[in-house]
Design a protein around this nucleic acid. Structure first.
Lengths: 262, 262
DNA sequence: AAATCCAACTGATGTAAATCAACTCAAGGT
DNA sequence: ACCTTGAGTTGATTTACATCAGTTGGATTT
């Protein structure tokens, strides 16, 4: 008990007790200027002046605990969000009550656009791990867009990115085998980790096997078996949620053709 | 040969010869005000003044022949399009060269947003039948949006609709059986025909079985068999591309639960 | 340290849909 | 009137993945 102390990890201010760590806030004042992600997040392509104005409306919330929700299906649409650190899963509930994962979001990626059309979020978004997000109130963003055309244009481009991502997923789901789906997801996550200046080959999956299988339209057993198969073929080294990509080219090749013989 | 004459069908001016009809243009000056679709197309929610300004930039192109392209994957992004009559299929080419249908668009629906993010269309869009579209040059639309906030807001809402549609398709592809996928598509098309003030039960599919199967991640044979099955169960009457929905509730029930026994 | 829990993995079996292979039929061309 | 072509359907067979049924191992509780 006497051992409790404050420490700093990443951007977080943390109380470390003998048994666990509790994130209590940010270690330093946050701004897009000093954000690791500013090269491809919301600020991308904005000049310093516009960025300053945009900054004023961004609210940095206190970090989310794992499984904590950002917004829920049916909530009135108020804001879009950027992942600052950690990861987010977004999912909707089918008419028959089943959950369907529609996306995973990593640092620098924007989520929440789905609520714009009818002013209520269609999806629920929850943190997969300890996660911090930047909230951008839409009404204010919209006002800013009306006075600064470059921000407006930028915003449209960001929404369109979501369309592109969704359509890539559609193509993946409609026309690929279990192996191709999983290879594709791993390569996609790997690419996105590079943007965080992390290793492209050693990755840590924040989501469970169940969440992966749901996202890809498979079962947990199949995901498990395919990962096992990739490991046996020395494409991967798998240790629970830790994955090392040993042969990225083999995974890429898998996307292009039917699998070579065993 | 002497029998050639001009006739008018729908909005089209047509030369009728003894053997075939050729569409040569529009029968009357076109405007959103007199468009059958104005209740839920681009104009939705705009007041008369704003609509007038929007109208000025809309180009009504001469009707497209079946299979004719509107834009092609890789083309520079210039415009978005609204279907005025007929239907459009949009598709992309996978890394491995396969075609993947990403959407079907019916009158009043907008397509082309996918090109916004990187200023080149990701998809190719072609007419499934004789089709007329309204072209809205994006640069001008954007300028108009900058001076008229309501148009801006409206535009964002339209893009978000595309996201919602794509995510519904993701959920359909990831978690449903062949029967559920096909039931869902038919119900969706039926709903959209109602907006054209057409029958919700007698419908004509402008796309081939191959295009349906590709869109839903199935094979032509499966589509054919499921339609046959639905016909035997008296859910549908199928005659090539003509479908009559006999038991809409049965199709809806299919979406909610595993199928009842044969 | 034993008991509980749950995510992940593995094996045996079942099945929905893919694949392979005809066959039908309407449309167009010669 | 005959031949070709391609979309659609139907049947037989195969297969990839789901389902069912344990087992394992790490984390949490008692």
């Amino acid at each position: 008990m006497a051992a409790d102390r404050f420490i700093i990890e990443r951007d977080f201010l943390i109380i470390e007790t003998t048994v666990k760590k509790i994130i209590v806030g940010f270690a330093k004042p946050l701004s897009c200027h000093n954000c690791r992600m500013n090269n491809f997040c919301l600020p991308l392509g904005l000049d310093a002046d516009d960025l300053d104005k945009l900054e004023e409306l961004i609210e940095r919330k206190k970090p989310l605990q794992p499984r904590e929700g950002v917004f829920f299906s049916g909530d009135p649409f108020t804001s879009i969000y950027a992942v600052r650190s950690g990861s987010i899963k977004s999912f909707c509930i089918d008419p028959d009550g089943r959950e369907q994962v529609t996306g995973f979001y990593f640092p620098g990626e924007i989520f929440g656009w789905d609520g714009l059309a009818d002013e209520h979020y269609q999806n629920t978004a929850i943190a997969l791990e300890t996660t911090s997000v930047c909230e951008i109130p839409y009404e204010q963003l919209d006002d800013l867009g009306n006075s600064i055309p470059s921000i407006q244009k930028h915003m449209m481009r960001l929404i369109s990115r979501e369309i592109n991502a969704d359509q890539r997923l559609i193509a993946l789901l409609a026309g690929n085998s279990a192996q191709q789906k999983i290879a594709s997801l791993l390569l996609s996550i790997s690419d996105r980790l590079v943007k965080q200046k992390l290793s492209s080959t050693r990755l840590w999956l924040p989501m469970s096997r169940g969440e992966i299988s749901n996202y890809l339209g498979l079962t947990v057993e199949t995901v498990s078996r395919v990962l096992g198969h990739f490991q046996r073929k020395k494409y991967l080294a798998v240790n629970k949620k830790e994955i090392e990509i040993l042969d990225k080219q083999a995974l890429r090749d898998l996307m292009l053709s039917a699998e070579e013989v065993e």
